[in-house]
Design a protein around this nucleic acid. Structure first.
Length: 262
DNA sequence: TTCCATGTTCCGCA
DNA sequence: TTGCGGAACATGGA
């Protein structure tokens, strides 16, 4: 489920499994997933080096290869990481595998190949190049900055939340959860929400923080969350209404129109 | 077999 | 200019 909270978990996972171990071999199993970097260049940059830091911006993960630059991973809809020692434990659909000197392997698996493997000089440069908006957990992003984002927007709030150029990291699932928790209908015009105070900003931060905490603790979703009930006709865990599936900005949005209003 | 899916990008159109 | 709908991408699961 690679939206911001999921990628944050991958970041922590990579940090605890693969840092400071020399990369002996780099296996590019799906060269068609490479962005601007060639397989040979990627191998040249990574092999013999070790990953020394891991960062995240929105849905992108960055791993520093000594001073040579940063490996960039995007997970599409189905990507994930897995570290293993026994080759029999390898996940299916490996697209990039780093064979580490301690006998472990770090695999980037991505069944649907909708992700991306890339390289950048610095995460800041990559962010600028991609035109990514601020990360909700990044510096300088607060209620004022968010309020400014809402101003003058003609589109829906769901569209804005999912717009990576506006805010980086939120996708279909978490935009639904944020709007569900804050009682806002996904088709509400973003600009109209400026008068509704900081409820949306606070709700957004709370949902993202809670989601990370739940995944870290491998706990289930909190009571009252929409996430495990994304199906038409399900009982609304907040108000007893019915969950409906509607189409918003080209995606299926799950909404309880009894407590979510425009 | 058919439909649907957590993402991004491109096109046409308002 | 902004933003929407739709299609495309590649693949697996219900």
């Amino acid at each position: 489920m690679p939206e911001l909270p999921d990628v944050e978990i991958f970041r922590q996972y990579l940090q605890s499994t693969a840092l400071h171990r020399t990369i002996e071999k780099v296996r590019v199993e799906a060269p068609e997933m490479l962005g601007d970097v060639s397989a040979s260049r990627l191998q040249e940059r990574l092999a013999g080096n070790a990953l020394g830091a891991v960062r995240r911006h929105g849905k992108y993960l960055f791993a520093a290869a000594d001073s040579a630059g940063w490996l960039v991973l995007h997970f599409g809809m189905t990507g994930y990481l897995k570290a293993y020692r026994d080759p029999e434990s390898a996940p299916g659909h490996e697209r990039l595998v780093l064979d580490l000197a301690d006998g472990y392997h770090l695999a980037y698996a991505c069944p649907r190949k909708l992700g991306r493997i890339d390289w950048c000089r610095t995460p800041e440069e990559f962010r600028k190049q991609e035109g990514l908006g601020p990360d909700p957990f990044g510096e300088g992003f607060g209620r004022a900055a968010f309020d400014e984002l809402l101003a003058g927007r003609r589109g829906s709030i769901k569209g804005l939340l999912m717009n990576q150029q506006a805010v980086a990291g939120i996708g279909n699932i978490y935009s639904d959860e944020i709007l569900f928790q804050t009682g806002i209908h996904p088709r509400t015009r973003a600009a109209d929400l400026r008068e509704r105070g900081g409820g949306l900003f606070d709700g957004m931060m709370a949902v993202l923080e809670t989601a990370v905490a739940c995944r870290v603790g491998e706990r289930g979703w909190p009571e009252g969350w929409l996430l495990p009930r994304r199906e038409p006709g399900a009982a609304c865990p907040r108000c007893g209404g019915r969950i409906e599936r509607i189409r918003v900005v080209g995606r299926n949005a799950y909404v309880c129109s009894r407590h979510q209003s425009g």
